[in-house]
Design a protein around this nucleic acid. Structure first.
Lengths: 186, 186
DNA sequence: CGTCACGGCGTACAGCGTACGTCATCGAAC
DNA sequence: GTTCGATGACGTACGCTGTACGCCGTGACG
């Protein structure tokens, strides 16, 4: 595995992505450059481009990795599906708080969109008609996204405790669900 | 007003900010550089720094300008205050759709925060106790922010009509308000 | 009339993403 | 055992960025 190694590559897309996440969490997203990342991996800058087509592509990989642990409950109760999705998803992201700006950047919303799509399917399996499922996903999705967007910097600067934010999140979510129950699902 | 003009300055912070907004809306936020902005104004690059301390400061100015038209209703009905804020605010931002990433960037959330603060005060004037007002602001704020975040790119790529998004926004908002009415304000 | 503060400007620097060309090394084919 | 194509690592170089710094011309004031 010395220098100038051929087919047997030390670098992999996964290693690159993992190192990028670590670097971003250690030094901040703004200080994540291809040069620094390569140095961290003991590789030449351009070698990264064998596993990642772009810096944008690297970002995509990082977001996929961050979002990987988000699972969707396969329940018969639509409220449970939605609540689990929103609550767990928010926790996962708040645990990777430095990477949130990456996840919610417009170019990367597709990844969150994929999850929303899966939730929609789960809701239909739980008996909601497609229109209601779509509305529920969109509405709760907004609450979820806004929570991630707004709660993260509030935690970063330390003005509020996470427990307090969790509480108002839960309050709002349950208000939203009961309201949707009455207005949409009925 | 020829070149090298002294105290009588052609440039002003406002002119710089307005031009920056125009340029960002014409060519995209990514193509807004200090050099291009200066060229657009027929000025030298560094002259901008006489009116703006930073590119960050320029961004702040732009966000303030975008957010300026958002007003807060001074009603006795807390639901009206909240609904007006969320609905109008969302419209204002969707009208400046290219600048949204700027407004909701973590470093600039302060500006939205100022508005939230004003809404909180209005809610207390309308009779809500401070705790309830804070909860309502936080909860509705999340829905509002998420709506701006998620609806904007969906509009940009043209997959959905604005009318449809407006409808689900209104649905969700009213669900949220009735739920909050029951759970928080009582 | 002297001087002084200030706005505009050009130059220069460090850092960025990445296109491109080269070279070492491997697995497979003969 | 030898050759060959593919692949990955690497160095160099280009164009672009934000902005620190210093100079110059000007209008206002004492």
């Amino acid at each position: 595995m010395a220098a100038g190694t051929g087919t047997t590559s030390a670098l992999t897309r996964e290693r690159v992505v993992v190192a990028a996440i670590a670097l971003a969490e250690r030094d901040g997203l703004a200080d994540l450059s291809m040069r620094r990342l390569a140095a961290e991996l003991g590789a030449g800058t351009m070698s990264l481009y064998n596993h990642v087509s772009d810096k944008e592509d690297l970002f995509d990989g990082m977001v996929e990795a961050v979002l990987a642990p988000v699972r969707i409950a396969d329940s018969a109760d639509w409220r449970e599906i939605v609540a689990t999705w929103a609550t767990d998803g928010r926790q996962v992201l708040l645990d990777r708080i430095d990477l949130i700006p990456l996840v919610i950047a417009p170019q990367r919303l597709v990844h969150l969109g994929r999850i929303s799509g899966a939730v929609g399917s789960a809701l239909e399996r739980a008996g909601l008609d497609p229109g209601a499922a779509a509305t529920v996903v969109r509405v709760v999705g907004r609450y979820f996204a806004g929570a991630v967007l707004l709660d993260a910097p509030r935690l970063r600067t330390g003005g509020v405790s996470r427990a307090a934010l969790d509480r108002t999140f839960a309050t709002g979510l349950s208000a939203l669900l009961s309201g949707l129950d009455a207005e949409v699902v009925g």
